[in-house]
């Protein structure tokens, strides 16, 4: 045992070196690892909020029908009952929030319809499809059909 303590100077030096090393590691880690890392898993917890901060562009069905009750009622009568307003009218969250004065433009009364209803062999057979040239060569579909409740009007 006495033999052991003869060279304690070496041991102290080593111990100091270790302590300094560990301290350096801890400080370095503190600087390098971002806040919240590991809170929920192997990622920065704040990243969830970063992703959530993205602005919403499509206001959503429930928002539209709060004001446009007449259209909602009309739509509920027909085959388009389950189609979201913004499927045809485009993203209108700014309109719904009243943040901009822009008046939403009406969708093209032919192209919008044909986007879904043009005949295509790949579409499910049960889906109503037309050959535009045969059905009506030109002109808006709304001349005969109600857009919101598309039986013949």
């Amino acid at each position: 045992m006495r033999h052991f303590f003869e060279h304690k100077e070496h041991l102290v030096r080593m111990a100091v070196l270790f302590v300094v090393g560990i301290l350096a590691f801890v400080v370095f880690r503190e600087i390098m690892v971002p806040a919240g890392f590991g809170e929920y898993g192997h990622f920065r917890a704040g990243a969830l909020d970063d992703v959530r901060a993205h602005p919403v562009k499509y206001a959503g069905q429930a928002t539209c029908v709060q004001c446009h009750t007449d259209i909602a009622e009309q739509r509920a009568q027909g085959k388009h009952a389950h189609i979201g307003c913004e499927a045809c009218h485009g993203p209108l969250a700014t309109h719904a929030e009243g943040k901009s004065d822009e008046v939403p433009t009406k969708p093209d009364p032919r192209a919008t319809c044909l986007r879904c209803h043009t005949q295509n062999v790949t579409k499910p057979k049960t889906f109503p499809q037309i050959v535009p040239a045969e059905h009506s060569a030109e002109g808006p579909c709304t001349a005969c059909h109600q857009a919101h409740s598309p039986s013949l009007s």
């Binding site: 562009k57 499509y58 959503g60 069905q61 389950h82 189609i83 979201g84 913004e86 499927a87 993203p91 879904c116 889906f127």
Partner: peptide, 9 residues
Amino acid sequence: ACCEVCPTG
């Protein structure tokens, strides 16, 4: 957004 605009669900 994709579910919102999907016409056939």
